[in-house]
Design a protein around this nucleic acid. Structure first.
Lengths: 237, 237
DNA sequence: CCCAATTTGTTCGTATGTATA
DNA sequence: TTATACATACGAACAAATTGG
């Protein structure tokens, strides 16, 4: 393994272990390089990859920081719905229910999990430009979210992922999504004001933390008449 | 503008102008750096970005080449459908029709174009694991595809984008897609063996060449019962 | 408003390692 | 084995952005 990858792993472990907390500043490059016993170029290569993965953030003239979840990051890395004309806007969330329960067969099946697992189930309605456009059903493994209560969920200051990160020590680093078309069931139809049977976009997301460990399962049902699901374009540079 | 970006632009222009043809090898790094009058590190930075954008391909021990379209690249960069269990497979294409016509209002509207433009319209049926799963409707601005005939389209040795690249000098560098759910119309329902009204995933793609110039518009209608549309995960490193 | 200190960004040149033909 | 090409690593110097005085 190249030296810069070893350095990258050590940095990653430091972030993962909380030695470097979210939002915290890293030592400057010269010091870090010295601490790792490598040249500054090698250190930069390691940091560069972590920046590309949104684990770290570099700001010229200021320093390098552990990335923190916020509205902008959510919008650009994790939210793939926008108006048909291309307008991107953060959704307005409305909590519909917050319950503890166990995974039923369908849900376990949908994500390849074993049924009966204790989970926190959260349902939200999302509005864009004031209109209801999506319904989210979040499944959180209860074991990972010990201190999470409805009150704390409601009182979150920023995004949900920021809540996980700041109050539960869970940092979502990546998510993958799979979409299909389904007919609106009565529940969703009522919530979004559409006729049952209307074609809806169903997006299943698995969000993971370090080591690809899943920490959130989410099923979004989207009314795609005025809004669309956009593919993140691989557009570096 | 940093020097490496200027070098990148000059390289890009060389590729765009055909000075460096698809599949062709670039001079080695030392020579290139000398030709541009920059250090090898600067040259590598420029090339690195073009590699990240799939314009160039680097192979250790061999050289650096202008990227060429082939089945693998299509599968990983441009084809986002896979079986629900994650199996990725190149689709089997069946040409349904190849016609010349003009953009009607609906199609022009869907892509923000002006109606009446002369286009080549190609319809394909896609099979995965032998089953029909999608219908593609390609709209090609006729002016760009002067030499394209049905016979040449049928006789293509590899992928469609390779055909554009090798025989028409059109290199697709990127594409963006937007998805929504629609009800299957009679035409698509018959072709894919589903009941009219079945919820289908409709994907609209715009493929572009250098300078973000659109060269292909495509509407795919996908039967997402056994297959799904996957979001390309931003997973560098 | 400008200046100075700090930090990352860019550029240089060299040497050595690794993969390929 | 040998030659060639890209990959990694080093260290130095200067540019550009930010912050605070």
């Amino acid at each position: 393994m190249p030296l810069y990858r070893a350095v990258k792993r050590r940095l990653l472990h430091a972030v993962e272990a909380g030695v470097l907390p979210p939002g915290g500043a890293l030592p400057n490059e010269r010091e870090l390089a010295a601490a790792f016993g490598v040249s500054i170029g090698t250190l930069r290569q390691a940091v560069g990859e972590l920046v590309a993965e949104h684990i770290l953030v570099r700001r010229q003239g200021r320093g390098t920081y552990v990335a923190r979840h916020n509205a902008e990051r959510f919008l650009f890395q994790f939210f793939h719905i926008e108006r048909a004309d291309g307008l991107r806007e953060a959704p307005e969330l409305e909590l519909l229910s917050f319950e503890r329960g166990r995974l039923d067969d369908d849900e376990a099946d949908a994500f390849g999990l074993k049924s009966g697992e204790p989970v926190i189930v959260i349902e939200n309605r999302l509005r864009l430009q004031g209109r209801p456009v999506a319904h989210d059903r979040l499944l959180l493994p209860a074991g990972l979210y010990k201190g999470l209560t409805e009150a704390r969920f409601r009182a979150r200051p920023a995004t949900i992922y920021r809540l996980y990160q700041d109050e539960l020590g869970i940092t979502v680093v990546r998510a993958h999504e799979r979409a299909r078309a389904v007919a609106a069931d009565r529940h969703v139809a009522r919530l979004l004001g559409v006729t049952p049977g209307t074609p809806m976009l169903q997006v299943r997301r698995t969000a993971v933390t370090f080591g690809d460990k899943p920490v959130e399962y989410r099923i979004s049902t989207v009314h795609t008449v005025q809004h669309e699901y956009v593919q993140t374009l691989s557009r570096p540079g």
